[in-house]
Design a protein around this nucleic acid. Sequence first.
DNA 1: GAAAAACTCCCTGAATATCGGGCTTTTTAA
DNA 2: TTAAAAAGCCCGATATTCAGGGAGTTTTTC
Lengths: 214, 214
Amino acid sequence: MKTVYNIIIADDHKMFVDGLRSILEQEEDLHIVHTTSTGEEVLKYLKINQNEQIDLLITDLNMPGMDGVALNKNIKKDFPGIKTLVISMLEDGTKIKTLTEDAVNGYLSKNAEQKELLKAIKCILSGENYFSTHIQSILVKTITNIRKTSEVRLTQREKEVLQLIAKEHTTQEIADMLFLSKHTIESYRKNLINKLEVRNLAGLTRYAIEHNMI
Amino acid sequence: MKTVYNIIIADDHKMFVDGLRSILEQEEDLHIVHTTSTGEEVLKYLKINQNEQIDLLITDLNMPGMDGVALNKNIKKDFPGIKTLVISMLEDGTKIKTLTEDAVNGYLSKNAEQKELLKAIKCILSGENYFSTHIQSILVKTITNIRKTSEVRLTQREKEVLQLIAKEHTTQEIADMLFLSKHTIESYRKNLINKLEVRNLAGLTRYAIEHNMI
DNA sequence: GAAAAACTCCCTGAATATCGGGCTTTTTAA
DNA sequence: TTAAAAAGCCCGATATTCAGGGAGTTTTTC
């Protein structure tokens, strides 16, 4: 008896999907049943074709609308039987971390070789997870880094004030906006400078932008 | 007589190269003679194999080391007979503009269809340039936008000062670094605030970051 | 229910930034 | 080539930020 695995591909870069298809079509036991360019379409397809047995979803990370992270989460919630392999341009540690927490089965960079792609797919279909040593090291780095930076967690109020500071508002203005004394805002400002280990307003602004708070 | 066109592909995403190859291999008149993952390799290959007639270079925009923009420029300088087609993930208006100024023959987004890819290649090989209407509109938008923002062009000195300001340096420090009076730096600061139409240090920092000057 | 964290407010002096001027030199364009 | 514009430079007055404290109230967390 010959097993054929059913695969769905989600990627808004059609050229990439075409490439992926031509690679997978060379394998006799891999069958692409559907390709979409958004995460929403995948879920819609699965809901309509519940009778169809899908084994693997290969998805891009960055897509318009529902991205790979959200899609993976939804899949694992509603269709836990489907394995997921995320393939991405970038090696975004935070997103990889979230994906692993959501039980993704593998992560591959788009600069991986054809050989590695097939290896990952085979690996996942046989029940194991696949993460290259490189991805693993990124994951570890991210987790340890998060642990380090999570010590400087800001409170809601602090975030609020920081945002307004970065938006060029003066202390007095912020005080008026939040119905607080200007002394209070000055305290926040001081605390933020301490907590974030910056020297001045420029540092605060940079922090705010880098943590996309504006 | 049957013409076969020789093509070189440069992209650090091997999976994409594989996909591209399998698409192009279906065409009888297209022949991939070489694939590389960096721009430097392309130039090296061309220098060594001068006798070989290359018709088209298909290159990614974002690559480690020499990127697509620099590669295109070098190709057009040293091997003006070779047509170039840049394929990129992102639709970066500024880079597209630079590319057109450097006589690139076509620009394609990676989310283009297989059909469009072949159309673009055929178009370029027949002597025309290929830019989709979408890319054209981005180009126009970028150019008009540049014209708009070019009114607030900063001098070299201003950029230098702005950078240092955004890096949390105080006026005195910057003055020391640039061997200028602190009053001078204060003037720059003032002028920058005027020119960039911001209110304070936070605005300057944001501008610097948004125009990736740090 | 106690301890910790968050939130609020206040003070002072020193440092720094901001604003409104004006001046000379270099570059650009009519 | 010669004005006009831009770049580079400086000053003083005022406003704001920064650093160092202290201290009471409310909310979370254990």
